[in-house]
Amino acid sequence: MKLHQLQALVGAVEHGSIRAAARELHLTQAALTKSLRQLEEEAGVALLVRKSRGVGLTEAGLRLHARALLVMRQLALAQDELQQAQGDEAGTVRVALTPYLMLTVLGEAFLWFRKRYPRIELRLIEGLVARVLPGLRDGTVDFAIVADSGDVTPQEFQCTRLHKDQQKLVVRAGHPVLRQPTAAKLAALEWVMPGPFSQGLDDGLLAMFAQAGVSPPQQITRCDAMAAMALIRQTDAMSVMPAPLLAQPEGHGLVELSLRSMRPPDIELVLLSPPEVPLTPAAAYLARCLTDAIAARGKA
């Protein structure tokens, strides 16, 4: 397989048609078609499905396309690394962060990073583990700092454990349950939780209810972090969130609900990156800025 053939495949999929891809890659349509035909001959299977409006991928094409994306990203990273090593401020850093880091340490780390790399392009992605793992696998995310959910295997990613934070039971200020909270009353409320839409409560929260001797809540709404905070603030729903969020402006109107029989599990922050793939100097420096900011907040 040749590099230009993989570029042709990625281009055809990205732009939706051979004609559009040829235009973007500054090739003739005939030259791009020839590259794709040679790639299919090399692979020994059909990769593309020609449609009246553009092209699609066969099952084999989907698999090769995922690998081709990774190859393209690694080549771009190699070019960035060589230029950055020579002092040029070139390239892009893509990082995924768990939502509460966006609201706590990101600003400080961003200022440190910009003092050294004022012109590097940054792409910051908010997401929990299940959302960022595909990007780490296909190379579209350089590294991620997320809360460990148990979904990460040490063999798949390089994993550095950073810091643990307490989680708190949270309701709106003035919530009726604050007058006389019990485990049963909390279980009867609707819970709003950031995270994968298909997932219920995690094992730690299920264990919390079991230890309190009550069944877990039946009504659980899954949404993004900012939506969860808005719903808690504006309704009688409740949630669990990292303690540092309550001190942020976004936590205004939210209060901790303390109940001796119910203590949410701590969360542990981990830094994840693809194994055996070094970060570019700019990405490595941003990772250092973030980890230093997390460590400083942990000591405060």
Score class of each variant (00 low, 15 high):
D202S: 08
D202N: 07
L206I: 08
R179G: 03
V192K: 01
G204P: 07
L178I: 12
S198V: 11
R172T: 03
L169C: 05
R172S: 06
P196R: 12
G195V: 00
Q199E: 13
G204H: 02
E190T: 15
L201H: 01
K185A: 15
L162A: 07
D202M: 07
P196M: 02
G174I: 12
L178V: 09
R172G: 03
K185W: 07
L206Q: 13
A184Q: 15
Q180I: 04
L178C: 10
P194K: 03
R161I: 02
R172N: 11
L186P: 05
A183K: 11
F197A: 06
L206Y: 06
S198N: 14
A173Q: 12
K168R: 13
G195R: 00
L189I: 13
M193G: 01
D165H: 15
M193S: 04
T182A: 11
P194S: 14
K168C: 05
H163I: 05
A187N: 11
R179C: 06
G204D: 08
L201I: 03
Q166H: 10
H175K: 06
K168D: 04
P196S: 10
K185I: 05
K185N: 10
L186F: 03
G174D: 02
L201D: 01
V171M: 04
R161S: 15
P176W: 11
A184S: 12
P196L: 01
A187H: 03
A187D: 09
H175D: 15
A183H: 11
A188V: 08
V192C: 04
L169N: 06
K185V: 05
L205T: 13
T160R: 15
R179W: 04
D165V: 03
C159H: 08
P176Y: 09
W191L: 07
D203A: 14
S198E: 13
A188C: 12
D165L: 14
P181T: 14
K164G: 13
L169W: 01
A184K: 12
R179A: 11
Q166Y: 00
Q180S: 14
V171W: 06
P194T: 09
V192A: 07
L162C: 09
Q167G: 08
P181C: 13
R161Q: 15
E190Q: 14
V170T: 05
F197L: 07
T160A: 15
Q167E: 14
E190P: 05
A188Q: 14
W191E: 00
A184E: 15
H163T: 06
A184V: 10
Q180W: 09
R161P: 04
Q180C: 09
H175R: 10
K185G: 12
W191N: 02
H163P: 00
A173V: 04
D165I: 02
P194I: 00
W191H: 03
T160E: 15
P196G: 05
L205P: 01
M193W: 06
Q199K: 12
P196K: 04
L189C: 10
A183T: 11
D165G: 07
G204E: 04
L162K: 03
P194E: 02
K185Q: 13
D202Q: 07
W191S: 01
